[in-house]
Amino acid sequence: MVPVIRTHGLGKVYSPGTQAEVVALRDVDISIAPGDFVAIMGPSGSGKSTLMNLVGCLDTPTAGSYLCDGIDVSTLDPEELAVLRRDKIGFVFQGFNLLPRMSALENVAMPLGYARVPPGERTTLAREALAAVGLAERESHRPSELSGGQQQRVAIARALINRPPILLADEPTGALDTRTGEEILALFERLRDEGHTVVIITHDPDVAAHADRIFAMRDGEVHEEPGIGNRESGIGQAELS
């Protein structure tokens, strides 16, 4: 099975060769299979956000390689990279990033406009995505009329609208209360069971414990946390190699 995420010797240095040089990532080797639920955990400054940006094709490494769903991203030009991000990766952020003047339906449908999907089809697909996250009855509501948990569900529906194989979530429960956060994590587990690969970036061990496997970031390096986060049904397929 081809890994959905595969890095080898991945490194990132900011301002190399200057007094401000910062080594953010060092020789990161990760392989994540389709359908895995993985948490990348670490405190601020550990390198987890840098790794998220590289895995999400929002930044480029200074060393090593990254294959996204079997594609070497270093071979892509900017336009091809944008298409890969659109088709392969759904992003979910702590701050929801919803447009306040748009309804939930319009927010979810927005990425399909960039993909030049006809308006009628956009509406149908957006309704299906909202129904999938339990918000079919809230499609006409604007973000200010929704709770934090509902806004995050809208953001997840938007991330899923292009049916990407990878769902990349950066502190997705950080702005939510504990009960609502648990509901969102249960939704991620369901999406995993439906075949999505879910990668959560978090500093919270309780959030990370929902994942099949946990990788801890320390000083730009990745270490597996043995015996933590493995599901009762067995060990997940993500591995360090």
Rank of each mutant, 00 (worst) to 15 (best):
G220V: 06
A155D: 14
G11T: 11
G9K: 11
R190P: 05
Q151T: 10
L176K: 08
G134E: 12
Q151V: 08
F93D: 08
S65C: 05
C57H: 00
Y66S: 01
L125H: 01
A211K: 04
A136N: 02
S147M: 09
Q152G: 11
G9S: 15
A159S: 11
H203C: 04
R163T: 08
A131C: 02
H8I: 15
D206G: 02
F37A: 07
R101W: 14
I184Y: 06
L167H: 06
S144D: 15
P100Y: 08
A238T: 04
G120Q: 08
P143F: 13
C68M: 14
E106G: 01
P205T: 02
G9Y: 12
D72F: 00
A175S: 14
Q152A: 10
R86D: 06
R179M: 12
V108T: 03
S147I: 13
E183K: 07
S103G: 01
V199L: 13
C68R: 09
A169Y: 03
L105Q: 09
R122F: 04
L187E: 15
T18E: 04
T7V: 05
N107S: 09
N162E: 03
L168H: 07
I161F: 11
Q152I: 12
G95F: 11
P61W: 03
N97R: 07
A169H: 07
P165Y: 03
E171G: 00
L98R: 04
F215T: 10
A186K: 14
P3A: 10
P226Y: 13
G220W: 11
P34N: 06
I71F: 00
P111N: 02
P165I: 02
I32Y: 12
Y114M: 11
L81A: 11
V73T: 12
T75S: 14
D204V: 00
I166H: 06
E139F: 07
P43R: 09
I166N: 12
E183I: 14
V207W: 00
A20S: 15
S31K: 07
A136L: 11
A63T: 12
V222E: 10
E189N: 12
L25H: 14
G181M: 00
S44H: 03
Y114L: 14
Y66E: 04
E224G: 14
I200T: 07
A211P: 12
L167C: 11
L168K: 07
G45D: 10
P16M: 05
G42C: 02
S241V: 06
G45H: 09
A157W: 13
E182M: 08
F96M: 03
E194Q: 15
E171M: 01
F93I: 06
A129D: 03
A209H: 03
R213C: 08
G42K: 05
L25K: 13
N107C: 08
G195K: 15
E79H: 11
F215G: 11
T123F: 01
E21R: 10
Q152K: 13
P16A: 02
L51T: 12
I184G: 05
V199P: 10
L130P: 02
G134D: 14
Q19W: 13
E145R: 13
V23K: 14
A126P: 03
R101C: 09
A39Q: 10
S15F: 09
E182H: 08
E128C: 01
I30D: 10
M102L: 15
Q150Y: 08
P143I: 10
E183D: 15
